[in-house]
Design a protein around this nucleic acid. Sequence first.
DNA 1: TGAAACTATTTGATACTGCAAATAAATAGT
DNA 2: ACTATTTATTTGCAGTATCAAATAGTTTCA
Lengths: 150, 150
Amino acid sequence: MELSTYLPYLVNRLGQRFVSEITPALNKAGVNIQSWRVLIALYQGGKQTVGDLSELTSINFSTLSRVLDRMEDKNLARRQRGADDARSFTVILTSKGKAVTEKILPYAKDLEVLATSDFTEAELNKLRELLSKLYIGLGSGNKVKERMAG
Amino acid sequence: MELSTYLPYLVNRLGQRFVSEITPALNKAGVNIQSWRVLIALYQGGKQTVGDLSELTSINFSTLSRVLDRMEDKNLARRQRGADDARSFTVILTSKGKAVTEKILPYAKDLEVLATSDFTEAELNKLRELLSKLYIGLGSGNKVKERMAG
DNA sequence: TGAAACTATTTGATACTGCAAATAAATAGT
DNA sequence: ACTATTTATTTGCAGTATCAAATAGTTTCA
């Protein structure tokens, strides 16, 4: 049993460390890690339904519902009844939400630059590629959960 | 601004997806994601103080304190007053803790295998290497936080 | 040696998360 | 059209996380 070969372990500890490194800076801007992810998803992907956002961010939909409540309270985003399907809500960044996102995006980039000072450009690209590929592989669209349950 | 090049974003979404994929299986064994991390850290690293565990797992120390309470309730680990320094506590896996860890370790491996079916062996190794390197780079031993604050 | 400064951990208060149940709207079958 | 089923989202509740303050033990140094 050599744990350093366990990808889930490596990914998880890295993710946790990243979160604890970036959280203080985000908090100063009144944003927590979940709303950071939602802001980014909206900033990048444009308006989306709550469900799409939940899928995209992997934030549990009831958690997300409340994250959105808080973001609306802070005037970062707002919900709009779906025009075609009135069960759904479309979530939209407000202009304040856009501004805040643009303010905090550099934090992540700064952190990346500091953390990767001894990476070559090729390594960085490879890592990005493999992280994306693994993300896809882990996708909730596949049979992972079903097989794990057995 | 092309977000798919933001390493923190890539790492974080992957980490979140991993957590939501593995959590159900862990819960069946009465373990949540934080205690999973503590179990692994103890299983791999042997007994450690609460502070060392907090550093190693990046779990906030007051959170960890309560995680350990629950683990003690479930007889997975126990705390022992430090022999040399009575301020500290040494945390030790119980035999039940060891058994549970050995039971649940395969879940992570299974998930890895399923998620990486189209990775070559070379890609897997490269990814492990780069994840470890990034983890080090992000280490709280460096100047990241201080610089981010400015 | 004893008060000040420091370190390790816990606790109080409050906010956040996530399961399961509830609500609300759309769709299907009759 | 009408009930049953399905889908999108929210809410109740119980558990979990985190900041700041409190506690408890140690080191420093006059």
